[in-house]
Write a protein that binds this DNA or RNA. Sequence first.
DNA 1: CGGGCCACCTGGCGGC
DNA 2: TGCCGCCAGGTGGCCC
Length: 271
Amino acid sequence: MPELPEVETVRRGLEPVLLGATITKLTLNRANLRYPFDQNLNDVVVDAQCIGLRRRGKYMMMDFDNGYSLIIHLGMSGSFKINPDAPAKHDHVIFETTAGDVIIYNDPRRFGFILTIETAKESTYPAFAAMGVEPLGNDFHGRHLFDRLQTKRTPIKTTLLDQSVVAGVGNIYACEALYMAGLSPLRPANDISADDADNLAQAIRDVLTAAIESGGSSLRDHRQTDGTMGYFQHTFNVYDRHGQKCRDTGGEIIRIVQSGRSTFYCPEKQK
DNA sequence: CGGGCCACCTGGCGGC
DNA sequence: TGCCGCCAGGTGGCCC
């Protein structure tokens, strides 16, 4: 589930226990996630104070007072738990703090990763160097999106998944934003008009913002007893609703495959 | 070099 | 109940 809103929710959920905390112990229950753990991971984290928790696209950065940061990606199935009642399968990384808190990274599929980097050199990390603007920032608007689409002939749905176009949009919110904007996922990106790009940019902002609010309420109201966060219920309009009726037009929502990924949309509403 | 395809890995679910 | 195939929110390497 971890697209931008989920990563932001995880970040906010970790802030109360991590920001300002000093790590006393780091436990690695295996040698790698998607990539082998960096050799200096333990040195970067242990006896260091966390002075920042930030997000860029679908990535989270944990900053320490020794000038190093962790770059964390949750992949498809990564999540954090705070002070869980019991150990669980796929608990791969365990942080312990001077306050006695235990923070666990769990990831069944292990598509996630944790890298170390000098904070000052963060922008040289290839994924960041190529990454597009933050969709919730001031630089993202219809005109910007329109300009970015001009060189793309790929279907707009596929284009929205390109992190160099917009940072943090994944399969679910690409589908949901196109639904809200009334645009077919099949439309070539450079066929989107300036007005439609305005609508789409606004739809992306609205969809992501609503999901973050949903995540916030999830953190407050539905924190599970084992401390799990990052996975919460949304009400989607099209995602995983193929065969069901569009809440707007009553038409049938269909599922197609684009670039190997499922796309859900209402052909009646989205042109 | 833009874009499609596949691998990475585990688990859940539906069909038989 | 059990086995099997298919599917899953992402990224990146390889190939055309």
